[in-house]
Design a protein around this nucleic acid. Structure first.
Length: 439
RNA sequence: CGGGGUAUAGCUCAGCCUGGUAGAGCACUGGUUUUGGGAACCAGGGGUCGCGAGUUCGAAUCUUGCUGCCCCGACCA
């Protein structure tokens, strides 16, 4: 993509309305624009990142055996009455009336709808277990939206729902999602630690929040350092094998959010003070098992081998997709701007032409651009007439992981200056060497 | 929902107290010079001063009602 043809409105100054660094940077780097409190438009660069996050989430859901579908944003009030939540949910639910005075709502979550779909589509135990998911926009009319996309009212979320015949089966589904989450966050380039969460009236040990560690996180979290260094299961993980040992490995160490924290227990379980981590965290995922909470009132049952009806054991598994963009920036930025992890960067490489119009420079830039393009590398090429300093600032601000800079001096010697955004390291090399970095 | 703040150009803000023809910097357009870390100069374009009502000869400025947005608290992926 040529910057001269792109839409990238960047801001030099810090917007007055943005408090935290990720929000400021998202506005400044031209990723989003606010449309109303807690509601944002996604500009081209931001949309690219959003899709990258979505795709990683999707790939890891698929790998774990979950099946994607898509439910609407608008739902009928009826099914919420079936579960009994229509009156319970309160003002957070945005209620809408259509022209026929029918009661609708903008979905804040999808347990009811997915339960209805599954109930109507599946009648036999032979069609279980299943995990279904979708990635969709939700709306929760938060009393006070804040922190940009980290607590918006409209937000994109991946939510998965599991349907099992037995509690034991549900545990297996839970484990699959747990591991899939470890892999997802690893691939997104962030450290997210599973922490035991309150299971409410259901009880048991099957509820975890995945907390991304970032200095500017909203809440204090405590965990054993061992968790930070723990190895995440690889691509070759067999989701049909016994996953219990991996769960044990990850859940046997102390990890708690502020609400669940017990200082005495912490020092007892992690005697070495150096191993005790207390940090700030952002919740980016939440998984839990809730049994027959919806399947019973909504009659989501299948017939077992003996002909008896079995209410399904369910769980739900959320990842805050749009929130993650803010969270990743919170975890990865410096005074010059965003530093994208490679896997979610809107472009792989930013090419700077320091002097458009200089024949030697132009030729070399075009060659680099097309050769990288041929390798399937996404490049954003700054071919504008902005001054050099401005180009550097913008490129640093938008945080592409690798910058390739060509000016008349370098072009004369056939040299590209390759800069690593994260470390700031620069080195001069030929086009061949530069493209070889991606082979 | 309680408390506090704020609303003037695309962005950051001044002007308001003490009413009298709408301002600055950045951004934008044209020009000259400049050209490796947000350049200088010259000339321009851009605003029903959030909306409504009132006071007044005259309102960005005073009064009043409403709305949006932000912050703190309680609530939350």
């Amino acid at each position: 993509m040529r910057l001269s043809q792109y839409f990238l409105p960047v801001l030099k100054e810090v917007p007055a309305n943005a408090e935290i660094v990720s929000h400021q940077l998202m506005l400044r780097a031209g990723l989003i624009r606010q449309s109303a409190a807690g509601i944002y438009s996604w500009l081209p660069l931001g949309l690219r990142v959003l899709k990258k996050i979505e795709n990683i989430v999707r790939e890891e859901q698929d790998r774990a055996g979950a099946v994607e579908l898509l439910m609407p944003t608008i739902q009928q009030a009826d099914i919420w009455r079936e579960s009994g939540r229509y009156d319970d949910y309160g003002k957070e639910m945005l209620r809408i009336t259509d022209r026929h005075d029918r009661e609708l709502l903008y979905g804040p979550t999808n347990e009811e709808l997915i339960t209805q779909i599954f109930r109507d589509g599946v009648k036999s135990y032979k069609d279980c277990p299943r995990i279904l998911y979708h990635i969709q926009w939700k709306f929760r009319d938060e009393i006070r939206p804040r922190f940009g996309v980290m607590r918006g009212r409209e937000f994109s979320m991946k939510d998965a729902y599991s349907f099992d015949l037995t509690e034991e089966g549900a545990r297996k589904s839970y484990q699959k999602m747990f591991i899939s989450y470890l892999r997802t966050f690893e691939r997104l380039g962030v450290k997210a630690i599973p922490m035991k969460a309150d299971t409410g009236p259901i009880g048991g040990d099957l509820s975890h929040e995945f907390i991304l560690l970032a200095d500017t996180g909203e809440s204090e979290v405590y965990c054993d350092k061992a968790l930070i260094d723990m190895e995440v299961p690889g691509v070759d993980i067999d989701y049909e094998s016994d996953l219990e040992p991996i769960l044990q490995q990850w859940t046997s160490h102390y990890a708690a959010t502020e609400e669940m924290h017990d200082a005495d227990k912490f020092s007892k379980e992690v005697p070495d003070e150096k191993q005790r981590i207390s940090a700030r965290g952002i919740e980016v995922g939440h998984i839990f098992y809730f049994g027959t909470k919806y399947s019973e009132p909504m009659k989501c049952e299948v017939q077992g081998p003996d002909g008896k009806l079995i209410p399904l054991e369910m769980g739900s598994y959320g990842i805050g997709v749009s929130r993650l963009m803010g969270a990743i920036i919170e975890a990865s930025n410096d005074e010059n701007g965003i530093i994208w992890p490679k896997s979610v960067a809107p472009f792989d490489v930013g090419i700077i032409n320091l002097k458009p119009g200089d024949e030697q420079t132009d030729t070399m830039v075009e060659k680099l651009y097309s050769e990288l393009g041929n390798l399937g590398i996404d490049c954003l090429m700054d071919d504008t007439n902005e001054r050099a300093g401005g180009k550097f600032k913008i490129m640093d601000l938008i945080g592409l992981p690798v910058q390739m800079i060509i000016g008349p001096k370098g072009a004369k010697n056939g040299m590209v200056e390759v800069k690593d955004r994260k470390t700031g390291e620069r080195s001069d090399m030929s086009i061949e060497q530069a493209t070889a970095l991606f082979k």
